[in-house]
Amino acid sequence: MSPRGVAVPNARELLFAAAERVVAAAGPGALTSRAITDEAGCAKGLLHAHFAGGLDEFVAELVLDRLARTAALAAELPARAGKDTVAANLSGVATALLTATGPDVSGLALTRPGAAERFRDAMASGAPGFTAIQESVTRYLDAERSLGRVPAGLDTAAAALALVGTVHHLLMTTWPGAPDPRDQVGRLVALLLRP
């Protein structure tokens, strides 16, 4: 355990990663401030020092952080036009979104009213999330259409909405032991790219 008063480098990420491990091992119901800090090997006060709003703020920030990472990955997608296969590129960003928070962590933001409110406020204020990812996928598909690698008649905005909306649905409705959602994403990508 880190001694009191000693700076902990990358404390936010240390706590976020610990929370993900707690949820993966014992489910969302096991997520408490104590469980997170015990898993991180730090003092309980560290969480509250970085998240004055307590566990609700922490959960909202965790989900926002993971969505922002996926949005940054998706923003690189248009530069991948013409590289690898379209299916692999789309599946890659969809898989990143599915695994960025995972269904259990994403669900935490919905089950904790304070976290859900913070999350909604952040999205309304322009935090990168599903809309940013959808816009990046649309730009990517536009670039691929100009290269002739997707059907000329493809409605790229609708295809991006279908992909991101499906992944969002899968995040909210997948549970431990459910079929691997990546299989469903693969089938959707194949359907969207059918000539």
Rank of each mutant, 00 (worst) to 15 (best):
V63L: 04
A40V: 08
A127L: 04
A159G: 00
N89S: 13
A43R: 12
V6L: 13
V63P: 02
G29K: 02
S125E: 15
A152D: 11
D104F: 05
V137G: 11
G92H: 09
G27S: 07
L73D: 13
T70R: 07
R66Q: 08
V189P: 03
L67Q: 11
A81I: 02
A60T: 03
A40Y: 05
T85W: 04
V8L: 13
A116N: 11
T174Q: 06
A132T: 15
A190S: 13
G165V: 10
R112Q: 08
P28H: 13
L31C: 01
A79H: 12
L73G: 12
L15W: 05
V185L: 06
R80K: 14
G148A: 08
F119N: 01
V86N: 01
A60H: 02
S2K: 12
G5I: 02
E61P: 07
D121P: 06
A19D: 04
V150N: 07
D142T: 09
S106N: 14
L77E: 09
A143W: 05
G29I: 02
A30M: 06
P113F: 01
D65F: 07
Q134V: 09
V93P: 01
P195W: 12
W175K: 14
H50E: 05
L191S: 14
E144L: 11
P9T: 01
A162W: 11
T173G: 04
L46N: 02
V189N: 05
T32V: 07
R139P: 06
V86G: 01
K83H: 15
E76Y: 07
N89Y: 03
D121N: 15
L14P: 01
K83C: 12
P103W: 13
A157Y: 03
A19G: 04
T111A: 14
S125F: 05
V105H: 09
V137K: 06
F51A: 01
F130M: 10
A88E: 15
D183G: 13
R34L: 12
L171Q: 07
L46G: 04
V164F: 11
A7F: 14
L191N: 13
L141A: 07
G186Q: 10
P179N: 00
A96H: 07
D65H: 14
R182L: 10
L73R: 15
P176A: 09
T70K: 04
R66D: 11
G126V: 03
G27L: 06
L171P: 04
F130V: 09
V86T: 04
P28Y: 11
A26T: 12
V6P: 10
V93C: 09
V164Y: 09
L97R: 02
A19V: 04
G5L: 03
M1D: 12
A7C: 13
R80V: 05
D121F: 08
V22Q: 06
Q184G: 09
A30T: 08
F16R: 00
F51H: 04
V63S: 05
L55F: 04
R187F: 12
A143L: 03
A26L: 03
